[in-house]
């Protein structure tokens, strides 16, 4: 009894208090901030598309819709597998859950690989910020490619952050921090992954399909 009393009095000790709803609420609030971060970018896109509709239209034809479609399929599938991993851990199937999160990470890697080749392809064609070819284009096309690099770049950064988050989920599943009775951390990680997915769902048509 005296020991628990002491434990309670230690400043800086973890307060033993479990609130799954609270954790998810906090996660949702954080996702709002991420959405608004991209909201600023969508706003910039909307303004410049409104000012240069014709040039955006032409520039968009330079992008390969097939590459974008493959990446969309990859990300959507990865959202499915991460959702399945939650169902798996709920049923107590730890190894299946780990495998599903790992598949999610592999799909994310495939997405990034695809993105890498896409960017490299653009660079080879002389399209990159301040490239001589780009500077000869009309302003709307310069802005289109500028926004393409900025927005898909920041999105790719979020894919990487999401992979780190999922990596921790694997570790927590492995070490038994996430169990069938306490899987809110996995849910929070999956929520973040869905955010990465949904932002792509908006980027994809804005850059690849509107032409």
């Amino acid at each position: 009894m005296a020991e628990t009393q002491d434990a309670l009095l230690i400043a800086g000790g973890d307060h033993v208090h479990r609130d799954d709803v609270g954790i998810k609420l906090g996660m949702w609030l954080f996702l709002f901030t991420e959405l608004i971060l991209f909201g600023g970018l969508f706003l910039v896109y909307a303004v410049y598309r409104y000012l240069h509709p014709q040039e955006f239209h032409l520039a968009a034809q330079e992008l390969d819709a097939l590459v974008g479609t493959i990446n969309t399929i990859l990300l959507l599938t990865s959202s499915l597998t991460v959702a399945m991993s939650i169902t798996a851990i709920r049923e107590g199937r730890k190894w299946l859950s780990i495998a599903l999160v790992l598949v999610t990470i592999i799909l994310a890697l495939a997405f990034l690989g695809n993105k890498y080749f896409e960017w490299a392809h653009k660079f080879e064609h002389g399209i990159y910020p301040r490239s001589p070819l780009l500077l000869e284009m009309p302003p709307g096309e310069i802005l289109y490619f500028g926004l393409y690099f900025v927005m898909t770049g920041i999105h790719a950064l979020h894919v990487i952050i999401g992979m780190v988050v999922l990596g921790f989920s694997v570790r927590f599943l492995w070490t038994g921090v996430i169990t069938e009775h306490s899987y809110v951390r996995l849910e929070a990680g999956a929520l973040y992954w869905h955010l990465v997915d949904i932002i792509w769902i908006f980027l994809f048509p804005l850059f690849y399909l509107l032409h």
Binding site: V47, Y48, L51, P129, P138, L143, F149, V150
Partner: peptide
Amino acid sequence: LFGVGIFDPSLGGDPVL
């Protein structure tokens, strides 16, 4: 860092934005 031009009028950008 990269001079993308989002706020640069010479590249079509808008400083007021």
